[in-house]
Design a protein around this nucleic acid. Structure first.
Lengths: 237, 237
DNA sequence: CTCCGCAATTTGTAGGATGACCGGGTGACC
DNA sequence: GGTCACCCGGTCATCCTACAAATTGCGGAG
């Protein structure tokens, strides 16, 4: 008797198989280095087609949990899913993630003040021009992309790979969340003067000034979010 | 040992397709909410079978980037790619990750100054006592754990789940990297006065003082690392 | 005009065919 | 006896056809 797979009708068969495979790893039924059953055997045992098994296995291979070797089989590479940390991050509220982004970008601005190259400054100035060009128009989407590009340029000028990667992830995720929760109308107006001040501070090479300018720049979306999401009740001393 | 012979690049077709799709998202050729071409059209355009496309799409669906709806098509759900973050993190050196940690903790200290509860302060004071107790002894490992606990308490006092999660993820890896690269001898001596100053600043409720105190606290390991790892050559203007 | 139902489109699943690759076994050759 | 080319079964990689299921949109009946 094949195990009942149709318990959750709304989910695809592949998702069900992915979960079953994950459970095998979580329950230590399959250890690191073990060879898991062949596609054909898994398909037989789960009562699904080989294509379904292949798609599920491919997902876990790409997640770093499994490793397929042609001609040999599929082996367990790791039982800990590192992407789970970042996946759980999506459950944090918008304010928390926005504050996290502020933490990253203020430090990035500080570092950029001492490390920016001529190319960095060129990119920052170009970003300012793009903002100025699209600024007066109500084209929210275009302006939002220009804004993202500008902030990415700031972080890139810090010349820190880890910072750039992590910021890039939360930047787009925050933007999507902001647009979703506030809508284009609720988005705070871009302040060109503040943006320019940040670039000037970075160019002048003053870390403290750059950090302050970055903080000023990032406070307005934070305040917009805080207007919607009240502070937690557990912040009383 | 004999020189390592590296196998020729043997990337699977599916991996290639995954990368192509990812590029479309990274370059914003496909925006959030867009419908991407049908499986058949992608297979046609990429010159691969529909099964190959399906496996690649399934990977991105599971990564949260795409969303497939039967009968309608496949849509862009998000452009924030967590696995790209982890991939880039492997290339980052210790200094970069340490600076990232500084970015998180200075902001955490700033937030903690306004949000710390009585329990937070209790935990911070307890952390100080633990450091003081083990401080004079040369038990590097124990002291390092106490140090980590202390810094985790600081971040927890900020009451920001996103910050806490990300900081926790990097803090352990930073400690491992520090011990590995510096060794116990190279680890800077813990400065109890600076630690105490940070707690005092958080208790007094002064965000700027807390940030400054946190930065003072974190600069010494950074300088120790920078002594070993020279700045990149690409930081000259 | 509304409502029902059918056709078209698209993803979901099944299973087969073929090829590439790996490991081990076999046997010829030195 | 040792070495090595070759074959064979097992496994994954890719492609294919076929059909199922879900959704949309259109067109005709009422």
């Amino acid at each position: 008797m094949t195990p009942e797979l149709r318990a959750a009708d709304r989910r695809s068969l592949v998702d069900t198989v992915v979960e079953q495979l994950r459970n095998q790893l979580a329950e230590r039924a399959w250890r690191v280095g073990d060879r898991i059953p062949t596609e054909h055997e898994l398909a037989d045992r789960l009562g699904v087609g080989r294509n379904t098994v292949r798609e599920a296995v491919r997902v876990l291979v790409h997640a770093g949990l499994l490793e397929s070797r042609q001609g040999q089989g599929t082996f367990v590479r790791s039982t800990a899913d590192p992407s789970a940390v970042l996946r759980g991050m999506k459950q944090a509220n918008v304010r928390d993630v926005l504050e996290l982004r502020i933490a990253l970008e203020t430090e990035a601005a500080r570092l950029a003040a001492t490390r920016r190259t001529r190319d960095d400054l060129r990119r920052l100035r170009a970003g300012l021009r793009a903002l100025h060009q699209h600024g007066p128009q109500p084209e929210g989407a275009v302006q939002a992309d220009d804004d993202i590009d500008f902030h990415l340029a700031v972080v890139a000028a810090a010349h820190n790979t880890a910072l750039t990667e992590v910021y890039g992830y939360f930047s787009s995720s925050v933007r999507e969340a902001l647009v979703a929760s506030l809508g284009q109308d609720g988005m705070p107006r871009l302040d060109l003067e503040t943006h320019t001040a940040l670039v000037d501070a970075i160019e002048s090479g003053d870390p403290q000034a750059a950090e302050t300018a970055a903080r000023n720049l990032l406070m307005s979306p934070l305040r917009a979010v805080e207007a919607l999401i009240p502070h937690d009740t557990d912040t009383r001393p």
